[in-house]
Nucleic acid binder design. Structure first.
Lengths: 194, 194
DNA sequence: CCGTTTGTTGACCGAGCGGTCAAGGGGACG
DNA sequence: CGTCCCCTTGACCGCTCGGTCAACAAACGG
């Protein structure tokens, strides 16, 4: 494993990450061997360990990079919008749109949550995201537009709706994404109430 | 592996399942070896393969048995209640109460969802549960008490809220379960609306 | 008291894993 | 051309895994 990379090296590293992400998503982390990853790229095993210290480190990098990318997209989506309820809505839509473009990561993240080696990384990612949501919720509560309940629990509830409906939309290919996003927002704002 | 078991045999089988469930929850499925399981029980390796054809079969049995138990509890909870909204509420509370008593299974189920070997079993369990919820939702929609939106998506939304808040309540030990159940119900019924 | 069935043991096996490393290619630069 | 250094190779290592099996113990019915 080396730290300084030439442009060529940086590309290889990215190839490895992309390829590994696809395989992890398809077959799972443990069942995918390092040999599988390098074979899929048609290179020798040493290449892997030139760019990563271990299989474990690769997944950690994958989790960090994907979360960074998602977060960037969310922030870009709500940029310049003041209304807290609207910010929540735009955040939800951005999240769904991101996962639609990076389907592989859903399975990977879900696995990582079950493995105590990676759970900490994921927990940190989630905490940040929850904290963001809590901020908007508090603003909305102050404005009297959002029900006055524990913002942390509310934030988790929203995350739950988004996560499960994202999963459903990604697996059942026939559900139009817009419709799902619509319902995520509507359900979060109004619940089942007629 | 044998099919006919004496009472003594049935007890051993249960010991293995309980023990394995604990280890799977603590360390994960793949990282827990069959040797670990039998060692934790202080028996030889042959015992495992007397009761189960494979490690895979054990987890499948675990998933089926746990789902059967949860479902029994849900049905018992809503038994004799006619009102659809109330049935949904009682179902949610029963689910949370069951997971509070069987914490191990949350991690196990979450892992199983990420492994294509076990995903089908889990998908079937979920389908059944979603179908139950859909029935109540449709009743509520007919009554005009529930918003007229796609019941399937609504059912998934409810499941998402319950799953995520259950996870949060189980991991953050300090959140009182009643309060979480309360919010699950309130959020599902009214959303964020003030 | 013996035969049968049920349950248990732990050494053993082949396979596959994550990870190492000595050796060698090839582009850039003098 | 020589000589760096980045990158690549793939045989190899130690180890653990899921799973097998011949032998044996314990319980039970007759």
């Amino acid at each position: 494993m080396r730290r300084k990379l030439t442009p060529r090296g940086r590309e290889r590293r990215e190839q490895l990450m992309t390829c590994a992400a696809r395989l992890f998503a398809e077959r799972g982390y443990h069942p995918t061997s390092v040999a599988d990853i390098v074979a899929a790229l048609g290179v020798g095993k040493g290449v892997f360990y030139w760019y990563f210290a271990s299989k474990e480190e690769l997944l950690t990098e994958l989790l960090k990079a994907s979360n960074h990318d998602l977060r960037k997209r969310q922030q870009h989506a709500i940029e310049g919008v003041a209304d807290p309820v609207e910010r929540i809505e735009l955040g939800i839509r951005a999240t769904l749109a991101w996962f639609a473009q990076h389907r592989e990561y859903f399975a990977i993240i879900q696995f990582a949550a079950t493995d105590e080696t990676f759970a900490p990384v994921l927990a940190r990612n989630r905490e940040i995201s929850i904290a963001d949501t809590i901020r908007h919720l508090k603003d909305g509560i102050v404005d009297g537009r959002i029900v006055d309940r524990d913002p942390e629990l509310l934030a988790h509830a929203i995350h739950g709706v988004v996560a499960e409906l994202t999963r459903h939309a990604l697996i059942e290919g026939d559900v139009p994404l817009d419709e799902v996003a619509e319902l995520c927002v509507a359900f979060s704002l109004e619940g089942l109430h007629a």
